[in-house]
């Protein structure tokens, strides 16, 4: 695995391998000295064209825990804001002799384009591209699901038989796309829940169920986790597309509140990729409830990103963990 661009590219065995490696990484993070030598002498650039707190910090933490040299390149405060092209930026970074580029970009396909161009030979890890993919988010979600749902020793296991509802703005969500691909590859059954305006034309070809009715989906049962997606309030306005009439109507129909949570079995996990709009797609009581694994998702993100960096940069031959 030279690059990680899309969860669609991952086979079941590759995905399970990443989750297993992440589990080993997580074990090392319980040690007093968390730093590992695996990527010593390697240089990783975090090339972020979009604002991101948790993803960039998560990658940076993972890189440093593996002893990589880290360069942070954000579009603000660089020549990008003066109009430098992606190609020129990547070639400039490449000329500094780097081993991997972790890229977040508002344009779908940006990571794919960098990986398949002759602009650089570096490993490319997609940290979110437009409304296309966010593979490490899906991997950390799968890791979190497996840790809670697949028994005391989940190593080597996939997510066979697990039921997951993904609720919200699927149309604009790279998290939803990555999760549909990965979770189904791992044997889970995914149901997308959204108003029809927030589902893409063509969603019927995806390997998942589709529901316009959150309450009916909850009543049908079979769910082990409910993953809420961030809904951007500007989508309401005419300029933003007019996808739904009001925040209140959205919350009533598609928000996860205490009443809906109370209708779910106690073991059902509540997930959210963050950042949350508390009060819109999820209430504070639910976000902070015992069933919520939202904070744990962040912690697992570091282990997953360590695993992805380790596997892409060393092919798993990076020495003792």
């Amino acid at each position: 695995m030279k690059h990680l661009l899309s969860t669609k590219d991952l086979s079941r065995d590759e995905a399970v391998g990443i989750l297993d490696t992440a589990a080993h990484m997580a074990e090392t993070q319980a040690r007093e000295i968390k730093k590992l030598p695996a990527l010593r002498g390697r240089t990783v650039v975090n090339l972020f064209y979009e604002d991101s707190t948790r993803t960039r910090n998560s990658f940076e933490t993972a890189e440093k825990r593996l002893s990589a040299d880290v360069i942070n390149f954000s579009a603000k405060g660089s020549s990008v804001s003066k109009g430098e092209s992606l190609k020129d930026t990547v070639e400039t970074i490449g000329a500094m002799g780097i081993d991997a580029i972790v890229v977040r970009h508002s344009a779908s396909g940006a990571a794919h384009r960098i990986a398949h161009s002759d602009w650089t030979d570096a490993t490319v890890i997609n940290a979110g591209d437009g409304t296309h993919q966010h593979p490490t988010q899906a991997l950390l979600d799968a890791y979190t699901l497996r840790r809670h749902l697949m028994g005391p020793d989940p190593l080597g296991q996939d997510l066979a038989g697990v039921g997951v509802a993904i609720v919200g703005d699927v149309l604009h969500s790279r998290v939803a796309r990555s999760n549909v691909d990965l979770l189904t590859t791992l044997g889970a059954h995914v149901t997308l829940v959204a108003p029809p305006t927030l589902l893409p034309i063509g969603v019927e070809t995806w390997q998942c169920g589709v529901s316009y009715d959150f309450d009916r989906t909850l009543a049908e049962g079979g769910l082990d986790a409910v993953m809420m997606l961030r809904v951007q309030a500007e989508r309401m306005s005419a300029a933003g597309g007019g996808y739904f009439p009001s925040a209140n109507e959205y919350s009533r129909e598609y928000g996860l509140d205490s009443a809906r949570l109370s209708r779910l079995p106690a073991g059902v996990l509540v997930m959210h990729p963050g950042p949350m709009n508390r009060g819109l797609e999820i209430t504070s009581v639910v976000a902070d409830s015992a069933q919520s694994v939202i904070v744990e998702q962040v912690a697992n993100g570091v282990a997953i990103r360590m695993a992805v960096l380790y596997l892409t940069l060393t092919g798993g031959q990076g020495g003792a963990l």
Partner: peptide, 18 residues
């Protein structure tokens, strides 16, 4: 709009041109 709206645009995350 960036490409034809259909199954491929849905998967690629490119805004559809219906």
């Amino acid at each position: 709009a960036l490409m034809h709206e259909g199954a491929v645009s849905a998967e690629l995350g490119l805004t559809g041109w219906p």
